[in-house]
Design a protein around this nucleic acid. Structure first.
Ligand SMILES: Cc1cn([C@H]2C[C@H](O)[C@@H](COP(=O)(O)OP(=O)(O)OP(=O)(O)O)O2)c(=O)[nH]c1=O
Ligand SMILES: [Mg+2]
Ligand SMILES: [Mg+2]
Length: 651
DNA sequence: CTGTCCTGCGCT
DNA sequence: AAAGCGCAGGACAG
């Protein structure tokens, strides 16, 4: 490859390239980003952009900081993590060649991204949101092909990053040096080559994946996913508004609280130790009183401890778990009680408060708040079942409002003045899907009759009348137990979770089998279908595939685990299908000004101007439950919808 | 210094 | 040995 002629550094060349690309009905693009916020699409600086179409490969540098050779060395004082100032030797490079200004590049390429050509990228949301900044906030227009998503649909179990995919499909290993991780300090021509190859291989991969989608009859799901991608773009641009002053007060509150709780533990234990270090905690709790410990009898091994035992090694009390469950069994011991209190607040402070505010002294802990909003990364390819995952930060594990601290954290997510949050969550979603798949029987009939199985289960276990089951009891003794049993949980775990004797747990599982034979028949059939295919797999409601080769493993425990995964994936994956369809429908039905901002597996959070509440409510209802979605399953779909100022108020 | 594993825990 | 996630801190390897 003659690299130089693909590098675009003047406007005439750029215009020529745009014209060449325009002759095709699709093109791939890829960007390289730099700066403190290189991996934050709403904030990063786009330093390079490259395009690829059949017969066209062009790479356009815009703000690469360095040239092609090292010309010296410089000492730079930096503070290390212990706060000490040290001198680091850093290379000095020559100046980069002349580069086009981003404003010109995005002006000249503007129409390409507006056109009806298919726009191809690997992890398209990142590249699209990153360039929207330079396009006056305008996102590229569909149609799209995200090769990360198509690769994932074709095989959810493998690494679907560009490098491993290219290695697999084309046998090329073009970046052993991990250029992508440090663009700003990589030589100009090396970045150019890297950016060009990424883009070209993305286009090639698109062509490969199109064939695969066809072969595996995955086009309908792929089209759904590309519609979902548009919604994710909008959500990524919008972000979730945060009550920043309240976050700072909460920080002060938690820091004071934790200081006290820490002191409480040390006082009761008679010594100081690292409360975040499980082995140190185990030492204090489980070593005999004579040796200065608490002499508590350890109950359950850690995963590592179990392995040791299997391997025939000796286990000590350092191999026993110090998790909250184990500690609760020793409740009453002052060290344990103080430790439990500490664990709750320290988890919340480090994950949700420091996590959002970041640490100015550590560049791997950036502040996650931008103009009062948090923009999570919803990964469309983030699970093997079809659900999204959420990261940087994860907004799908915000504490429930059941405790004071949980309420204060969930309450940080707000509607600004003049707006409301509409929070809509499907009712018993996966149980309804199970009823659909299992067909006629008690569960199916129950849903037709309007029952709430979570409340019924909780009432049964707690021996309470239905109308006396609290929301928390419904979750802890209803939901958890229904899904535990439904997804193949054993009697010991059931006894543990439900806090009932083993015999009662055995009874409950036996009764379940007797009351819902159709569920067990469905599972059996599903597994035999899965096993009959090569490789073993199932398809969800929309035809999404989950491949579980382990279901034919000769090893019993591996095979049985795979069986549970198949059953769970069929149902969880179908629930994911439903929420994805609902997102696409809702997005297009919402009035201008109302925006979907979050999704939590079976929940949609929408930010709505006060004036549009009723319109938006109707749109969300229609999106989640209307014709065309409710027909997907044979039991009614229901949702629970709340209009609130703070997320914590929806419960 | 960076990267990886383990333990533990937040959520659906 | 219900399923599916991501993140923090400690411990350790390089
Ligand atoms: C809480 C929980 C949920 N899930 C799955 C199944 C649920 O249907 C799905 C959504 O979770 P939830 O919305 O918490 O539960 P739900 O929809 O069954 O009940 P509700 O009427 O209160 O909304 O996530 C589990 O697999 N295990 C669990 O412990
Ligand atoms: Mg629900
Ligand atoms: Mg939910």
């Amino acid at each position: 490859m003659r690299l130089a002629r693909h590098i675009v550094s003047d406007v005439e060349h750029l215009r020529h390239v745009v014209k060449e690309i325009s002759r095709h009905d699709h093109f791939a693009w890829d960007i390289e980003t730099i700066g403190e916020y290189a991996t934050t699409p709403i904030r990063n600086d786009v330093a390079w952009i490259a395009f690829s179409a059949p017969g066209v490969d062009a790479v356009i540098p815009m703000r690469h900081p360095i040239g092609n050779k090292i010309i010296g060395e410089r000492k730079e004082p930096r503070t290390d993590k212990n706060g000490k100032v040290r001198n680091f030797r850093v290379p000095v490079w020559d100046e980069p060649p002349p580069q086009l200004r981003p404003s010109i590049v995005f002006e000249e390429t503007y129409e390409l991204f507006e056109s009806d050509r298919e726009k191809v990228a690997q992890n398209l949301t990142f590249d699209a949101i990153s360039i929207a900044k330079h396009r006056g906030g305008s996102l590229p227009k569909p149609p799209f092909h995200d090769t990360l998503v198509s690769s994932w649909l074709l095989d959810e179990n493998r690494l679907n990053g560009l490098k491993p995919r290219v290695r697999e499909e084309f046998g090329s290993d073009y970046d052993q040096g991990k250029t992508g991780k440090h663009i700003a300090t990589t030589l100009f021509n090396d970045v150019a080559r890297y950016n060009l190859l990424d883009t070209r291989f993305t286009r090639w991969l698109r062509n490969r994946n199109l064939k695969g989608l066809e072969d595996q009859r995955l086009f309908p799901v792929f089209r759904l996913e590309m519609d979902v991608l548009e919604v994710l773009l909008s959500m990524g641009m919008e972000g979730a508004p945060l009550d920043v002053p309240a976050l700072h007060s909460l920080k002060d509150h938690l820091e004071k609280l934790i200081e006290q709780q820490e002191a409480d533990v040390y006082r009761s234990a008679g010594k100081a130790f690292n409360l975040n270090a499980p082995r140190q905690v185990a030492e204090v709790l489980y070593s005999p009183k004579a040796k200065g410990g608490q002499g508590i009898k350890p109950t359950k091994l850690t995963a590592g401890g179990k392995k040791k035992k299997q391997a025939g090694e000796r286990v000590t009390f350092l191999d026993y778990t110090t998790d909250a469950d184990a500690l609760e069994k020793a409740a009453g011991n002052p060290v344990v009680d103080a430790l439990l209190a500490f664990k709750e607040s320290s988890k919340l402070l480090s994950t949700y408060v420091y996590g959002y505010l970041g640490d100015a002294t550590a560049k791997d802990r950036p502040c996650q708040i931008h103009s009062g909003k948090i923009h999570t990364n919803f990964k469309q390819y983030g699970t093997v079942t079809g659900r999204f995952s959420s990261s940087e930060p994860n907004l799908q594990n915000i504490p429930r409002p059941g405790t004071d601290l949980g309420k204060r954290i969930r309450g940080l997510f707000i509607a600004p003045p003049g707006y409301k949050l509409i929070v809509a969550d499907y009712s018993q979603i996966e149980l309804r899907i199970l009823a659909h798949f299992a067909g006629p029987g008690a569960l199916h009939q129950g849903f037709l009759d309007g029952i709430d199985p979570h409340t019924i289960t909780a009432a049964g276990i707690l021996n309470l009348p239905h109308d006396q089951v609290t929301g928390e009891q419904r979750t802890d003794y209803g939901k958890r137990i229904n899904f535990l049993i439904g997804y193949g949980g054993g009697e010991h775990l059931l006894a543990e979770v439900a806090k009932i004797p083993l015999t009662e747990a055995q009874n409950i599982i036996g009764q379940h089998e007797a009351s819902f034979p159709e569920i067990y028949a469905y599972k059996k059939k599903l597994l035999s279908v899965a096993r009959s295919r090569n490789p073993p797999h199932i398809r969800t409601l929309t035809g999404r595939i989950r491949r579980v080769p382990d279901v034919i493993s000769p090893t019993k425990w591996i095979r049985q685990k795979a069986e549970r995964q198949i059953i769970n994936s069929h149902i969880q994956g179908s629930a994911a299908d439903i929420i994805k369809i609902a997102m696409v429908r809702t997005h297009s039905l919402l009035p201008e000004g109302a925006k979907l901002i979050l999704t939590v597996h079976d929940e949609l959070v929408t930010l709505v101007p006060d004036t549009l509440i009723e319109e938006a409510r109707v749109a969300i209802h229609e999106g989640m439950l209307g014709e065309g979605i409710k027909n997907l399953i044979s039991v009614p779909l229901e949702s629970d919808t709340k209009v609130v100022d703070r997320w914590s108020e929806a419960k």
